[in-house]
Simulated scan of single mutants.
Amino acid sequence: MTKLLTVRIPATSANLGPGFDCMGLALDLWNTFELHRGNGAGITVESHGEGEDVLPRDKSHLVVRTMIEELTTFIPFNPDRQAYHIVCRNAVPCGSGLGSSSTAVLAGLIFAHAVLDPQGFHGPAGSARILNRAFEIEGHGDNVAPALLGGLVIVVGRDGEVITHRITLPPTRVVVCVPRFHFMTSHARSVLPLHYSRSDAVFNVGRAMLVVEALRNGDASLLSRAMDDRIHEPYRLPAIPGAIEAKRAALARGALAVTLSGAGPGILAFAREDHDAIGQAMQSAFATAGGLPARYWVLDVASSGAQVFV
């Protein structure tokens, strides 16, 4: 086999409390994907690390599905007559609220555009096309945009256009604790109300702006006062056993602010110090209150997004 391309894509934490569906943060935990010219016919996959025992090894894998769907919108493409092999080296846990599926979608899109345009796919125009398509596939960009661009990203859709604004942060370290709990994104969406009051909308808009300013300026006091939400956390936290207690435990142990990571079930804590102690406190709370084993990671914010090596 001949390696054609390697892509590294970071984990992400979306929403960040009040920034529902429009704000996300890239984290220094990476999935790596390799595209090889295979032998014979058909597209095959091998996975190592997180999810290696459960992820599919054929064209039903999300990377391959995305790659095929993207290619077939531009060219006649029969995957059964192709010869590609994809290697996934996963450090981002699946179903954790850390954007694992977004890394797969982005990898599939990057591979497809590398096949379509080997010279220009990873330039500015190629990146813009990939971001637009990822936004369409995901329905919102709060995971895919920071995974592609790095750092803190605000992202919204407008009349078919994706508007992004990337914000450079001072060195920022977080703790993410993920319980062993299957919390499907579809279920996480289904528990949300269809309508919100004006006061709840105003509450979130104001706090989202304050969270951005607090992170941009490293303002711990402002972050601890602003990180609150009325759009999704009041409905999702109770659906995850032990999550409410884990959030309380992190704050009691010294975290500045604590929120769901994406839709959950992972919990994200911002802190200046005692990161391991905060992670252990969340682990203990999940075990005691929710009966769930949990793992935690201490992670820096990733200043760069997806990296392509040809």
Rank of each mutant, 00 (worst) to 15 (best):
P146F: 00
A147K: 05
L148E: 13
L148I: 05
G150H: 11
G150D: 07
G150T: 06
G150S: 05
G151L: 05
I154L: 12
I154S: 02
V155F: 11
V155S: 11
V155Y: 10
V155L: 09
V156N: 06
V156L: 11
G157Y: 07
G157W: 10
D159Q: 14
V162E: 11
V162Y: 06
T164S: 13
T164F: 13
T164V: 15
H165E: 15
H165Y: 08
R166A: 06
R166E: 10
I167C: 14
I167F: 04
T168D: 15
T168M: 08
L169Q: 08
L169R: 13
P170Q: 10
P171D: 07
P171Q: 09
T172L: 12
R173N: 01
V174C: 05
V175I: 03
V176P: 04
C177P: 00
C177F: 04
V178P: 01
V178A: 01
P179F: 03
P179I: 09
R180W: 00
R180N: 07
R180T: 05
F181G: 00
F181L: 03
F181H: 06
F181Q: 12
H182V: 01
H182T: 04
F183W: 15
F183V: 02
F183R: 02
M184F: 07
M184I: 00
M184E: 15
M184S: 12
T185G: 00
T185R: 14
T185A: 09
S186D: 14
R189C: 05
R189K: 15
R189Q: 14
S190I: 02
S190M: 03
S190T: 04
V191I: 12
P193K: 11
L194I: 04
H195D: 14
Y196C: 01
Y196L: 11
Y196T: 10
S197R: 15
S197K: 14
S197L: 13
R198D: 06
R198T: 12
R198E: 13
S199E: 15
S199Y: 07
S199T: 09
A201M: 15
A201F: 12
A201S: 14
F203I: 08
F203E: 13
N204Y: 12
N204M: 13
N204D: 15
N204G: 08
V205R: 07
G206Q: 13
R207D: 10
R207Q: 10
A208D: 08
A208I: 14
A208M: 13
M209N: 10
M209W: 10
L210K: 00
L210H: 06
L210V: 03
V211T: 08
V211R: 10
V212I: 15
V212G: 04
E213P: 02
A214Q: 08
A214F: 02
A214I: 03
A214R: 02
